[in-house]
Design a protein around this nucleic acid. Structure first.
Lengths: 344, 344
DNA sequence: CTCCCTTTCTGCAACGTTTCAGTCTAAAAC
DNA sequence: GTTTTAGACTGAAACGTTGCAGAAAGGGAG
């Protein structure tokens, strides 16, 4: 600040940070002239540089931010994050989204944060590499599992399996699946051969869970068409469900990997004159569309956010226990969108 | 970075920021050793200090962050903000909330941001003073109007008036109002005398709009009880509506200053065995509860966020046009929660 | 051969703090 | 009257950049 005040910079610093280090009289004088000069206290950026920590946590989403705010699942996750960060006074930095992942990776490099939370990415996303390179503590949420980084997720395979078993148990045999992409760019029909070689992702885990459940009833990928959607939005679900039902007109049940996709699928069904659940049963994922009556695999989104932030905060502290893995449970919540097939 | 590489710091800086300033060969060598040494590129904090800008915009809410994520109105507003910030690659810093406003004011002082967006505060909130003192560009959203700061809001008085007129037009005469607090600490029954002397706030503006509309039908504050709620939550609405209906058991219509309060009021009505809209009509504010059938004064929340961010971004640039005011329109959207009073 | 210009790289200063090791003064202890 | 000690304040260094002025080297024009 205006050290032209006549005292040393150290004294000004002490006036703000360690009142016990100087006489009350001088402190008052410093504060008074500060007010007079319009000095608002130590500059946060300079302080961060000197102290070596920013007092912030960065959050990265797969899509643009506006997209994330459209998804109740992301909002609940953010709520969980803020539960933990508010409690310790850390600010949340929302890293700007961008369709070009390389641009977003640069944004990650340039974010003034002490740690990062990566939400719902795919293994080949350059953001992952940028984060690892950055060398700060980070928590990967949902996917992928990365060596050296903390991980918080849910039982994807089990959750997906429970959805499939729910449908099989109701008597469905002609199923279709509305999945996420196995990679950053993958979309459209899934080639089962890709599944075996694909890197870790939410889609892969859930599809494996599906396969296991399907196998119990003697079904396999040749019986169940899968469509990959690039993002989790109602629009993507609408388009994907149409593509799927074009390929398998006789399908009686659809499992979507998110409630937003499921909502899109329901719209597609309506556009095709298919009654839900009469002609088509729909199961979603997340548990964020209960009010809309969608049967869904519920996951503890807010808890997931809280746990992720807490892990990161712990990693930021001295008690660095090394990266760990934490899996949260899922639970199928039946709604009005599923029923036994008409011609059972 | 490890200038021990053998080249000067400037060269490293140029390797990252101005590739044209050094030979491709040397640049490659720098980048290679950087990768080898685990150097992830220029430190964002040091860069911010040197360049004088952080590349971030701070956002402050009245409540805790978790509270904001619970409110669809706040989420839509954030979505609008991110529409604008994503486009220019600015990060959004969510300043941590805290019940003690003084603590939050300190958080505002310590946030490494280029500008601030203040959302839904009250004039006596110390966060305002801290922001003014900070001297950075800032946009106040909704309230209060502050000298020297940009302002973006809606036509509160007009919107509130349209709600009252809607109810009066339907034949209601026994109205009650579920308001926000006039000050940081105000809650409970409103003393109309306070209204005249209160500082600028959303509550004050809307109540004045109500008064004008009521006066058109010869009604005044002695006819219309008002309850102030400390926050905009369903729980607060529930408690406030009960208090209000205890005071005015014969009320046939209730106007709540937010949809969350309105939802709470509907719950209170249900707990009292009052049919909505048969025995009690309810009007909300925001337009975020259309799906729940609440008649509401719709406001363009996402646009409001976008406009606020755009104004701030403009103020950050060289083209500082000086603070301005921008008012967005509202529009009453009828729902299933209002009807003429039973004994018209 | 000289002069000037271009390319490529470097050194210095500054951004605004905080920390640590001191220095100085004045009061307390002996 | 001298030594201790505590209290109050300061100076220098460092945090990691970037921008600018300038230096060294090489090439072309005259």
């Amino acid at each position: 600040m205006a050290r032209a005040l006549g005292v040393s910079p150290s004294t000004v610093s002490n006036a703000y940070n360690r009142p016990d280090q100087l006489s009350p009289a001088l402190r008052d004088r410093v504060l008074a002239t500060a007010a007079e000069l319009g000095y608002a206290g130590p500059d946060p950026v300079a302080r961060s540089l000197r102290r070596g920590r920013a007092g912030t946590i960065g959050v990265v989403f797969h899509d643009r931010l506006a997209q994330a705010f459209d998804d109740p699942a992301a909002v609940q996750f953010l709520q969980g994050l803020s539960d933990a960060t508010d409690a310790v006074g850390l600010a949340l930095v929302l890293v700007p989204g961008h369709p070009d992942q390389a641009v977003k990776a640069a944004a990650v490099r340039d974010a003034a944060v002490d740690g990062l939370i990566l939400n719902g990415l795919v293994a080949d996303d350059p953001v992952i590499a940028a984060t690892v390179k950055r060398g700060r503590p980070a928590v990967v949420v949902d996917a992928p599992v990365v060596d050296g980084l903390d991980f918080v997720g849910i039982d994807d395979a089990g959750g997906a399996g429970s959805a499939i078993r729910h449908l099989l148990g109701a008597g469905h045999r002609r199923l279709v699946i509305l999945s996420f992409g196995l990679t950053l760019t993958a979309r459209g029909p899934l080639d089962p051969a890709d599944l075996a070689t694909a890197a870790d992702s939410v889609a892969r885990r859930r599809l494996e869970g599906c396969a296991a459940a399907l196998a119990e009833d003697g079904l396999g990928w040749s019986d169940v068409p899968v469509e990959q959607c690039a993002k989790s939005s109602v629009e993507a679900g609408l388009a994907g469900a149409h593509a799927l039902l074009d390929r398998a007109p006789g399908a009686t049940a659809l499992f979507a990997f998110s409630d937003r996709l499921a909502l899109g699928a329901r719209r597609a069904a309506a556009e095709r004159g298919l009654d839900v659940p009469g002609a088509l049963s729909i199961v979603g994922f997340d548990g964020t569309a209960e009010e809309q009556g969608i049967t869904s695999v519920h996951q503890p989104l807010r808890d997931k956010g809280r746990v992720a932030a807490e892990r990161l905060i712990a990693a930021l502290g001295a008690d660095a226990a090394g990266p760990g893995r934490e899996l949260l449970p899922t639970r199928l919540v039946p709604g009005a969108s599923t029923a036994p097939p008409r011609a059972a």
